[in-house]
Amino acid sequence: MFNIENITRKNVFKLAPYSSARQEFTGEASIWLDANENPFETEINRYPDPNQTAFKTEISALKNISMNQIFIGNGSDEAIDLLFRAFCEPGEDKSYIFPPTYGMYEVSATINNVETVKINLTTDFKIPECSDILKVIDSKGLLFICSPNNPTGNVYSLARIKEIASKFKGVVVVDEAYIDFSKTESAISLLEEVPNLVVLQTMSKAYGVAGLRLGMAFANEQFITVLNKIKPPYNVNSLSQIEGLKTLKNRNKVLEQIDLLNSEKDILIELLSQIPSVNKVYPSEANFLLVEFKDSEKIFITLRSKGIIIRNRSSQIKNCLRITVGSPEQNKVLIKAIKEI
């Protein structure tokens, strides 16, 4: 039977968490004199809900998952950092990643004095066979699977994720920052049968509120209890909670934008594939495209001089640029500019 104590840092497991004023009393009151706040009302003079109750209630209904299985963070990056703090003993446990992938996993590992072991994706950006992965795994810790993967745009099957998690003694973290653009089912559906799984999602991509810094982690209740124990007392501010909730309640607009961006992505793939300077456009289930050019540096620098900013990923994948799918008008300008180079 799964026991969170076996993979949690001993000092964290024994930790008595800080109890904030807003955690010691919940409910309605007429006079608040418990948290040393400024008493003059400005709508933001009070501390935010440390449990993000209203926001979590909406997420719970949307994802069909218990509120006790939801952690809300200051962006997904906070959840990533807390996972290292909770489940990796510095200098002992390791972090396993499949490059090319999101760079923040390695940065967070280094900050927390955790060695990163890189297991490269295959030439067609697939995760290696389990037998090959197990050859290089020699500790518990965290294993990150980004799906859809950044910067390649491809997804990994739930069966593959389940297989890896069943053989890894640490925590498997599936980062689904771009899952809203994909037709693939979320790994949240695996949580009941895969106890060592944590799934990350975000409001920054499809929901269009990157400035709010709202990230989510989904896991069994034991994981969420540990993360809540070590997070800052008021890690998500009031304005982010309020605006995030508004965005969730206006989800039809979000769905319309997702459909439009996926349609625009298909148009971009077709048009880019016809341009002589383009070698290859990789398939993508995210809101971006990885594009291999004959001379990526020339394309990148020239577009930048025209005020069109894309991401140079050539250090990870030779001659490749990552292009976010823009609005129809922005995409037309982009294609015209590339054709003129």
Rank of each mutant, 00 (worst) to 15 (best):
L134R: 08
V136H: 09
V136K: 15
I137Y: 10
I137W: 11
I137E: 08
S139V: 05
S139R: 12
S139W: 06
K140D: 11
G141D: 06
L143Q: 00
L143M: 12
F144V: 04
C146F: 10
C146R: 03
C146Y: 11
P148E: 10
P148I: 07
N149T: 06
N150P: 00
P151F: 07
G153W: 05
Y156V: 06
S157R: 11
S157L: 08
L158P: 00
L158Q: 14
A159H: 13
R160V: 01
R160T: 07
R160F: 02
I161C: 04
I161T: 08
K162D: 03
I164T: 01
A165I: 02
A165Y: 00
A165E: 04
A165C: 00
K167Q: 14
K167A: 02
K167H: 08
F168M: 04
F168L: 05
F168Y: 08
K169E: 14
K169M: 09
K169N: 14
G170A: 00
G170I: 00
V171Y: 03
V173Q: 06
V174D: 04
D175L: 07
D175I: 06
D175Y: 12
E176M: 04
A177W: 00
A177C: 14
Y178L: 08
I179V: 13
I179T: 07
D180T: 08
D180E: 14
D180N: 15
F181C: 09
S182K: 09
S182I: 11
K183S: 11
K183L: 10
K183R: 07
E185P: 01
E185Y: 04
S186F: 06
A187M: 11
A187Q: 08
I188V: 11
I188Q: 06
L190V: 13
L190R: 01
E192D: 15
E192C: 11
V194P: 13
P195N: 10
P195C: 10
P195R: 05
N196M: 10
N196S: 15
V198D: 02
V199G: 05
L200G: 02
L200F: 14
Q201G: 03
T202M: 14
T202C: 11
M203Y: 15
S204A: 15
S204C: 13
S204Y: 10
K205R: 15
A206H: 06
A206D: 12
G208L: 12
G208I: 04
V209A: 14
V209D: 04
V209G: 05
L212C: 08
R213T: 02
L214V: 12
L214H: 05
L214A: 07
G215V: 11
A217H: 04
A217D: 01
F218P: 00
F218Q: 02
A219Y: 10
A219P: 03
N220W: 07
E221H: 09
Q222I: 01
F223E: 01
